[in-house]
């Protein structure tokens, strides 16, 4: 249905405006270099994913996160307030053969985000991995438990303030933290 309108998107110079109109979300920030990237607020995030799914982006190929503690001043479009954490979602449209990226800022004080599980069930393991390694809580996720680390592990290893070698290796002379 909406595919026909979107089909012209790649060639058309008006593409971003059209896509924004189709999405129907006010005040949405985006950039487009080689792949269109949206920078929704946490409130817009879930709606945006829902709308994009209707616009034929049927598969979530990747969901990951980054901790910008030591690289806080990264390039972001005007109007986006940088926060410590960022969740990056890659959506894929099979009919359009293109990807879109969603980068949503997650503050350090309240590291939580609405789950995408009910839009893209394939994000279940990915969100669990982000929770496990980065400590971002996905609200309403059906099974928000650690997935890679042991159940009783303390801390979230991919955070930048989690030092490499902090936990002594069991089988060697303990090297101590670096």
């Amino acid at each position: 249905m909406t595919d026909n309108r979107l089909d012209n998107m790649s060639e058309n110079t008006q593409t971003q405006d059209e896509l924004i109109t189709l999405l129907g979300i006010d005040g949405l920030t985006f950039t487009s270099d080689n792949v269109i990237t949206f920078f929704p607020t946490r409130e817009q995030y879930h709606d945006l994913a829902l709308r994009l799914k209707e616009l034929s982006f049927v598969t979530c190929s990747d969901l990951c996160s980054a901790d910008y503690l030591r690289h806080f001043e990264r390039p972001l479009p005007v109007g986006v307030t940088p926060e410590r954490f960022e969740v990056v979602v890659n959506l894929l449209s099979l009919s359009l053969r293109r990807r879109v990226k969603i980068r949503v800022q997650v503050p350090e004080t309240d590291p939580s985000l609405e789950t995408l599980f009910y839009v893209y069930p394939g994000t279940e393991n990915m969100e669990r991995e982000v929770y496990d390694l980065m400590g971002i809580n996905f609200e309403n996720h059906p099974d928000m438990t650690r997935i890679l680390m042991p159940e009783d592990w303390e801390g979230h290893p991919l955070r930048k303030d989690y030092a490499v070698g902090r936990v002594p290796v069991q089988f060697k002379e303990a090297p101590g933290p670096r």
């Binding site: 309240d110 590291p111 939580s112 400590g135 809580n137 609200e139 309403n140 303390e154 801390g155 979230h156 955070r159 303030d161 989690y162 030092a163």
Partner: peptide
């Protein structure tokens, strides 16, 4: 290293934020 670096599990407890999903 400050203590709050890896004690998030207790400090950022989702229920402490006041949202109930029941």
């Amino acid at each position: 290293m400050p203590e709050d670096d890896y004690s998030d599990s207790s400090e950022n407890d989702p229920f402490a934020s006041g949202v109930v999903l029941d």
